[in-house]
Amino acid sequence: MNDEVPSAPRQPLLDDDSRRVVAAALAGAALGAWPAFTLGVYGVIFFEQHLSLWAAATSAFLALGYARGPRVWRRPAVLALLLPTLWIVLAWILPVGGTSGIYQALFWLGVVITVAGLPAMAAFLVRLIIPTAERLQGRERLAAVGVVATVMLASFLTGTQHPRILTCEDFSISGNYSPDNCSPGTGSTVR
């Protein structure tokens, strides 16, 4: 006599729904982790990250206009792609550096645009590149956003705790400025 309970059929690991969630989470987390880490280490987001977001957003904005015609530029979602350009224009017009309220507001606007914009840009690009990715609904969308938020938060916290896991040499060998509170010693990335 067989006492085994029949098991339910197993779903494939990578069905279409899982692929969409993983692609959205991977793209968003990959783009958002580095700015979150540098914000944790240095308290700033590097200009390269602002400019990378600007280049991706501007490319998507222009490509959509060329592919679909200029009327597509009237859509709010497409116009949102100009937020990094707005930040650059404001940075150009307003005085650079300093401690004024305007400078601080511009700094935090850049942080918000970059930290929120990179994952949003990744989600937008995933929808453009992966057929049916726009079908992410409810729980799947929440799962992708949750993964991206978790990875970005973990990256930020890792950045704030960098003296425990990275040395000054790790930063310098990678071409980054060694923060004041970095740990001395041979880096973990140096052999």
Score class of each variant (00 low, 15 high):
L39S: 00
R191W: 15
L106S: 10
F107L: 11
V5N: 12
L62P: 11
A57V: 02
A23T: 04
W108R: 03
A154Y: 09
H162T: 02
Q161L: 15
S18Y: 00
D180P: 15
R141D: 01
G175K: 00
G98K: 07
A143F: 00
F156Q: 10
L153H: 00
F61H: 10
V115S: 09
A30W: 02
R68P: 01
Y42H: 10
R191K: 11
A144G: 00
H50T: 06
T85C: 08
A60F: 07
I88N: 10
L166R: 09
F47H: 14
L106H: 10
F47I: 14
F107V: 07
R141K: 13
L128R: 12
L79V: 12
R135H: 11
L26W: 00
G28D: 01
F46N: 11
Y42C: 10
N2I: 11
I88C: 13
L51P: 08
M1S: 13
G159D: 05
T189P: 06
A116I: 11
C168W: 01
L31M: 13
R20A: 08
G117C: 02
G28E: 05
L166H: 14
S183I: 10
A116C: 13
M1K: 05
L64N: 01
H50W: 07
S7F: 05
T167L: 00
P35Y: 00
V78Y: 04
P6Y: 12
R74F: 13
P9F: 06
P9A: 15
V145Q: 05
L153W: 04
F124D: 02
P163C: 08
V5W: 04
V148G: 00
Y42W: 11
D180N: 09
R10N: 04
A116F: 12
W73R: 13
D16K: 02
A8P: 04
V112N: 04
L31A: 06
V78N: 02
L90Q: 08
G146D: 01
S174A: 15
D15E: 04
L86N: 03
T132E: 14
L13E: 06
G159T: 12
V115C: 12
A63C: 12
P163E: 11
S18K: 11
M1N: 06
E140L: 01
A25H: 02
Q11T: 15
F107Y: 14
G98L: 08
G185M: 08
V147W: 06
P76E: 02
A154H: 05
G146I: 01
L153F: 10
V44M: 05
A120F: 09
W73M: 15
F171M: 12
V147H: 00
L82E: 04
L51C: 08
A123D: 06
E169D: 09
